[in-house]
Design a protein around this nucleic acid. Sequence first.
DNA 1: CTAATATGATACCTTTTGGTATTATTTAAT
DNA 2: ATTAAATAATACCAAAAGGTATCATATTAG
Lengths: 113, 113
Amino acid sequence: MNTETQATQLAFRALADETRREILKQLSEQEMTIGELVEQFDMTRAAVKKHLIILEQGRLISVKKQGRERINRIEPSTFGVVFDWLAYFDHYWETRLQGLKQVVEAAEAEKKT
Amino acid sequence: MNTETQATQLAFRALADETRREILKQLSEQEMTIGELVEQFDMTRAAVKKHLIILEQGRLISVKKQGRERINRIEPSTFGVVFDWLAYFDHYWETRLQGLKQVVEAAEAEKKT
DNA sequence: CTAATATGATACCTTTTGGTATTATTTAAT
DNA sequence: ATTAAATAATACCAAAAGGTATCATATTAG
């Protein structure tokens, strides 16, 4: 079997932790440095950094270097792989989730222009 | 913080493993016993059983006892908690994923009548 | 009643995960 | 040039995950 992409696995893995999901919510409000993120959580900088690495591996965030700071921002287009996987179950809900991955990625592409 | 429900955590945790996601796909085609599922995977019955337990804890499947067999079936309404979480990011895509959770759960409710 | 079958449960092992504490590196300010 | 600030990296630890092998239990068939 094993027909699934590595991207899908890394994305779902990244979403599996509550702290990481909360980080994504924070970053969806505003881009932030690690330092700023650490203030929001009751754990060490190193712990937050590990979560950011896993989010990066799942391509759910990206990092922009700016002077001595690293700005973490959400990468919403990658959510498409999640929708894509969920779309497999479309026939249960009779929705047209099928094309939503493309919708999501197209919307993101437009914002970058 | 920690505003998230336990149901959300258990669902995302259950979705984090590729074998479990594959089990869900199999079960979406057809209800199956553990024995039938084991044939589809290259691992022991005990391993598959553990995955089923985690899927059950995430309420993504349910089990129907039938004689000496246990029929595992998908519980599509629970996918709603996933959509619900993803809907938080709606503003990125300008989609109306927001109400999709209700759509999904309503569709399921109808099937049961 | 006794097999055989389908499943459940438990003990055990290795790897991954989520966390800390500590040390190192890069960049900005004085 | 030194110091301070922001971040990165590494070693270490406990707990959870994912797997196996083995034993126990329930249900159907002869």
